[in-house]
């Protein structure tokens, strides 16, 4: 048992280092435009992701459940979701430079995880349900997608220069804009699932499917903001800068729902 805890910690640390290096190399790639750095950054991200997955597997072995029940566990899963969404996007569209905007986010959330208490606590009675896995699992993916979308939007907002390097390593601005839209659409479907499964679970644990708990309310607020984004985009042709800013605001809401609500607005949902 001790061994597994040790293995978990060491793989978590290695993954954190890998993400840090990846974030740095992506930024270096952005500045120096050397092809080899891009390859290195991608490889180290992929390897880091593998080791991070291992860390999570070790934790699952230790605790006998998925790591979804306190702030540390969610933060590490959230990072995992971000990197997963990024890698999927990367291997489909092959635009290496996107990492320069997504990996720093992964680094930040992983850094947040690393300062949180990592002890494994048994599940409190309210969390002992299979809905935990569906509800939090979809949240991990949804938040990961929103993070990637925010990275793409940040890239849109910063990236205006056009040269040879850009076109092969970074999606052109139009692609950037569309990708962030599609990733948001995916995250939005997932967020809807998070809220729906949460309602079903709340009904069976707390008697009410909706009780205006701060976490519930903030997930609704996030959902409303992305709803506005989708409508403006589809019907009013909001693209480019306006849409990108909206996407960044949406992600700030996601982060607030994740961290802010737990620390500033305690309710029945504040698992620390």
């Amino acid at each position: 048992m001790e061994n597994i805890i040790f293995l978990e910690e060491i793989s978590f640390t290695i993954a954190f280092i890998a993400y840090t290096l990846a974030a740095l190399s992506f930024i270096v790639l952005f500045a120096f435009k050397k092809e080899i750095i891009g390859k290195f950054a991608t490889i180290i991200t992929t390897v880091g992701f593998g080791i991070h997955t291992l860390a999570i597997v070790f934790r699952v072995i230790e605790s006998g459940r998925l790591p979804f029940s306190n702030q540390f566990e969610f933060a590490t899963s959230f990072t995992w979701g971000i990197v997963l969404c990024y890698l999927v996007l990367h291997y489909i569209y092959k635009y290496t430079g996107v990492g320069a905007f997504v990996m720093p986010l992964a680094f930040l959330v992983m850094g947040y995880a690393s300062v949180l208490p990592k002890d494994i606590r048994p599940l409190m009675p309210a969390l002992q349900s299979n809905w935990l896995y569906v509800h939090v699992g979809t949240a991990v993916i949804s938040y990961g997608a929103f993070a990637v979308a925010a990275g793409l939007s940040a890239m849109y907002l910063l990236g205006t220069k056009k040269d040879g390097f850009r076109s092969s390593y970074l999606p052109d601005l139009e692609a950037c804009d569309y990708m962030s839209y599609r990733v948001i659409a995916f995250g939005y479907v997932m967020l809807t699932l998070v809220i729906v499964t949460g309602a079903i679970w709340a009904k069976s644990a707390w008697s009410r499917y909706w009780a205006w708990d701060p976490k519930e309310t903030w997930s609704l607020i996030t959902w409303l903001i992305y709803s506005v984004y989708l409508h403006l985009r589809f019907h009013r042709g909001w693209k480019g800068k306006a849409a990108a800013w909206f996407c960044v605001i949406g992600f700030i809401c996601v982060i607030f729902t994740f961290i802010g609500v737990n620390t500033l607005l305690p309710g029945i949902h504040s698992y620390r």
Partner: peptide, 17 residues
Amino acid sequence: AIFLLVIIAVYSIIGTV
């Protein structure tokens, strides 16, 4: 619709604060 979505969001925020 957009106006309502925004105003409902703002109202909801007040309720959490």
